[in-house]
Every structure is written in C-alpha cells, then in structure tokens.
Nucleic acid binder design. Structure first.
Length: 394
DNA sequence: CGACGTGTAAC
DNA sequence: CCTTTTACACGTCG
C-alpha cells in the first residue's frame, strides 16, 4: 500500500508489503489520505484568560500597539465575546475601542514569549499523533494520519477527540479540528464549527460540503478575487464549480483558474510537510513620519540587529537584502539587491543605507513604517540538532 | 533565466 | 490615521 505523499522508502508498511509481494511491485495501490487540521481557538485571548482568571467571562482583545500614540495599533486576536461586539483580528484598535464603548471590554498587549512557549508544547503533543506533521503558524497545524488510520475515518475522529482532550487537560485551551481527504478540505471543515468544534468531511462529499459557501469564505480567496468573481456573477462555491473553465482562464490565467476550480470542489494535492523558511523580515512603525534618511536608518539598524539574531538561530545565509517602506499614505514599496552569500547583516548595512537614501531621493513622501527582509536563504547542513524555537521561526 | 518590484492572501 | 510576518504568483527587464 502506498499513500499519496508518503515517504515511500522509509515506510515499514511499504517495505513489508513489497517484500511480501516481490514480483507484484508494478501494481501500485494509492491510498487516499486522511488529514486533520487543528486550530487553537482565539489562542492569544484564551491564554490571557487562562492566566488572568479575573478577566474570564469578559470580552478580551489582545492588541499589537505600534507605540506611535497611546492607542494606535491593531487587534491581534479577540475572544468570542469580543467578536460578538464586532471586534475582529486586524481591526485598528481605535475602531475596536469604539465598538467596545459601553461594554466591559479588556484590552491587553501581546505577550508573544508566553504564547510561543505554550504553542511549542501543544505542537509537540500534536506531532505525536501524526504520521506527518506541518505547523503552519503559532496556532495551527496539519496532521497526516493516513498510515495510522488506513482509510478509516472513525479512527481519525478518535485521534481528533484524543487531541482535543489532551490539549484541554494539559494546557487548558480548546481547539477546533477539521478532518478531510486533503489539507484544504480539513481546513475548510475546521472552520465550520468553532470554537471547540470537530467536523469531518467524508471523501466524495467535498463539493457538497462547500457548495453554499460564498467564494470569499474559501481559504485562499480573499477580497480582491471575490470581487472579480462577483463581476462574473459567481457568488458561491457551486457557482464557481459550474462556471466555464475557459472563461475563468481568460480572466485569471490558466494557473489561477485551475486553483479556483479546485477550491470550489475541494481538490488539493499538496503534501503535509514541514517547509524551511525562505525569508526572514522585520518591520516596524516609526515614532513619527519622516523623509529623512538618517532618522529612518536608526530604525533600520535596530531591525537588522534583530534579524541578525534570528539568522544565526536559523543557521542560514542570505543572498538578497530588501528594504521595505510604507509611506504615510500606507503605500508599500520595496527595494532589493542581491549580493554574495552573507551571514552578517551588519556588514551589509551600507547597502541598506544606500537603498534608503536613493529611495527617499526619488520619492520624498514621508515614511510611516520601515522594514528589512533577507531572502534567498541557504541553510547550513546541520547535525540533527534539538528542535528549538528558531526551527519554526516562531 | 535571474533579479527586481508589485499584488494577493493568510495569520 | 491602520500590525506583523511569510508565501507565492506574475509582470517586466536585461
């Protein structure tokens, strides 16, 4: 038995089977996969409630303060009570305060170290239940249980229940789990019931499960694409599924058209695998807008310092350096330059300084935010080292 | 093709 | 008057 995307050579089950079959190797069975998506519910807010019993039962809003004024910044996560007031992730804090007026809402700053620490323990716990594992963010992961469950969705459901129970008991937080035949379907399944949900989409029922969803709710389709689809009269997943592929290709190009069609039907072949980071970046809001290169460069040096630490932790060199600027009208621009592989950003500071000067010369619109990115990374091959924070870049 | 800049999307 | 970090696709240029 061979599983799609299974590491065939290392699979004991495969070796047994092949050795047993000997001559029959040319006949290959491809087993459908079973994937779990686990999403920790309102993670930051839940952790704050966990350690601050006095705020439980209240709307809680965890914020990223930019430091510009007392209240400027955005919402990182809100708990479900706050969401009832319309307070959502990404919303400017000023708007959230307006929505909170007259209610007993708790506003807190993020404590990323605390969240990361807890996340790391939970991810380790999750990984133990998976044949293949992929952490996608601080609060989300995919688990491939194809080999363990061998097509048995009851088995997958049992694993999901165990996971939910363990996380609840050991860490005191809830999660929502989606189960499906691929990553995309498991993700969409998990969204169906939150918080503390468990939703399974059996193979063959994907299109039916998705059919009434507005296209903007499909993972990977955002506001822009939603608007373009709307122009074609496409509102729901089933509209999209029934739409002429030719016409989609004319509007979106072959690749994106295929992607859209797949999303409408619940098709996704991408494997569950932990990927190496391809870029590292830091961006920050300036205390005040400036078109003075010297002033902005002070911040660049700070950010570079920080990136340098992460670079060393990750054990990688970079070949491309990018200066990111966001002006006071919130337009983003980038200037990048490729160099000989380097492991030391500080040695490349003059390059950043030049890019910044040149940039402000061409366009002196005052900058609001500034950032640095390194990409084109190559990892030093390393002896099997301990799994550390840096491994997942959290 | 590689380098560079932008746009979209998700967290 | 609005965060941060990452991925990836696409257009363009030389």
């Amino acid at each position: 038995m061979i599983y799609k995307h299974a590491n065939v050579k290392n699979s004991k089950r495969y070796q047994r089977k092949v050795l047993g079959l000997k001559a029959e190797v040319s006949c290959v069975f491809v087993m459908d996969r079973i994937i779990l998506h686990v999403d920790l519910d309102a993670f930051y807010a839940s952790l704050e409630e966990l350690r601050k019993p006095e705020i439980r039962g209240k709307p809680v809003v965890v914020c990223v303060y930019s430091g510009r004024t007392e209240e400027s910044g955005a919402v990182a996560t809100s708990n479900y009570l706050a969401r009832e007031l319309g307070i959502r992730a990404g919303m400017p804090i000023a708007y959230a305060k307006r929505a909170a007026k007259g209610h007993d809402v708790v506003f807190l700053p993020t404590d990323l170290d605390y969240y990361r620490e807890t996340s790391e323990r939970i991810m380790e716990l999750l990984e133990e239940h998976a044949d293949r594992f992929q952490q996608v963010s601080i609060d989300e992961a995919y688990l491939d249980v194809s080999e363990t469950c061998r097509g048995d969705y009851g088995c997958a459901e049992k694993i999901a229940q165990e996971i939910k129970q363990e996380i609840k008991v050991q860490e005191g937080v809830t999660c929502s789990v989606g189960i499906g035949a691929n990553k995309y379907v498991s993700k969409m399944a998990g969204k169906r019931k939150k918080p503390d949900g468990l939703t399974m989409v059996l193979p063959g029922t994907e299109a039916d499960f998705l059919k009434d969803l507005p296209v903007g709710k499909l993972h990977g389709i955002g506001g822009k694409t939603e608007a373009e689809l709307e122009d074609l009269g496409i509102k729901t997943a089933s509209d999209l599924a029934g739409y002429s592929l030719n016409t989609l290709e004319e509007k979106f190009g072959k690749n994106k058209a295929k992607l859209l069609r797949d999303k409408s039907l619940g098709i996704d072949e991408s494997p569950v695998e932990q990927k190496e980071k391809q870029q590292l970046s830091r961006i920050a809001t300036l205390k005040q807008d400036t078109s003075d290169a010297g002033e902005a460069f002070v911040k660049v040096k700070e950010l570079a310092e920080d990136l340098q630490k992460r670079l060393i932790n990750a054990g990688t060199s970079f070949r491309t350096l990018t200066l990111i600027t966001i002006n006071n009208r919130l337009g983003m621009q980038t200037r990048s330059q490729s160099i000989e592989a380097s492991t030391d950003i500080n040695a490349q500071l003059p390059i950043l300084e030049n890019m910044l000067k040149k940039f402000l010369n061409d366009d002196p619109t005052p900058l609001r935010r500034i950032g640095v990115k390194v990409s084109n990374l190559s990892y030093r091959k390393q002896e099997k080292k301990q799994k550390t924070l840096a491994d997942y870049g959290l």
